[in-house]
Amino acid sequence: MPPLLFYLFALITLGFGFLVVTGRNPVTCALALAASFVGLAALFLSLDAYFIGVIQILVYAGAVMVLFLFIIMLLDIKSEEGKKLNLPAIVSGVLLAVLLTLQIIAVVGSTELAQKTSQDTPLSLTEAATKIGKAAALPTISNDLKAGTLPDAKLIGFTLFDQYGFHLQVIGLLLLVGTIGVVVLSKRERSAP
C-alpha cells in the first residue's frame, strides 16, 4: 500500500475516533464510530488480512453499530448540551491518554522489530505451497497459493478448525449464553408482590 493511503486511512480512523470521544450527540458519536471502523478495516486490508477486514465491516460497522443506533433511538437519548463538564475526569483522562501514547511511541521507536517494512517480510506464496504441510494437502489452498493469490479466509478457517476446534465450541456456547442472557435481562419484570 502506498504510504499516502496508509496516512489517509489512519487519519480517518483516528479523526472519527476523536469525534466519538468529543461528540455531544450520541447519534453523531455512533455514526463517527462506524466511519472509524471503516477506516480501520481499510488498514486491515493493507496488512493483507482480507477476511478480518471484511468481518470488521460486517460485524462492527454493520451489526454492532445498528444495535447501538437502535438502542439510542429506542431510549430517545438527547444530546447532553448545557450540562456542565466533569473537569477532573476530563483532565485525568486526557493526561492518561497522552502518557500512554508517548510511552508507546517511545517503546516503538527503540525497538528493532518495529522497523520492519513489508519489503523486509515479503509474502512468498508459491514457496509456501510446498512448506505449510497439512494445509497444503487441501487442493483448494495449494492451488490458490500456486496461482499466486492469498487464500486468506481458507487459511484462517483451516487454522480455526485444525488447532482451535475446542475454542470455537466455547465461543459458540458463549454466544448461546449471551443470547439467553439478553432475553432474560430485557424481559419486563412483573410488578412486585
Binding site: L14, L43, A89, I104, G109, T117
Partner: peptide, 26 residues
C-alpha cells in the same frame, strides 16, 4: 516506508482515545 511501528503507533493512539473516552465521558 510504512513500518510495523506505524501500525503500532496508530493502534496505540486509537487505544488511548478510547481510554480517554471511557474515563471522561458520562
Amino acid at each position: 516506508m510504512i513500518t510495523l511501528g506505524h501500525y503500532l503507533v496508530v493502534s496505540g493512539m486509537l487505544f488511548s482515545l478510547g481510554l480517554a473516552g471511557v474515563i471522561a465521558r458520562r
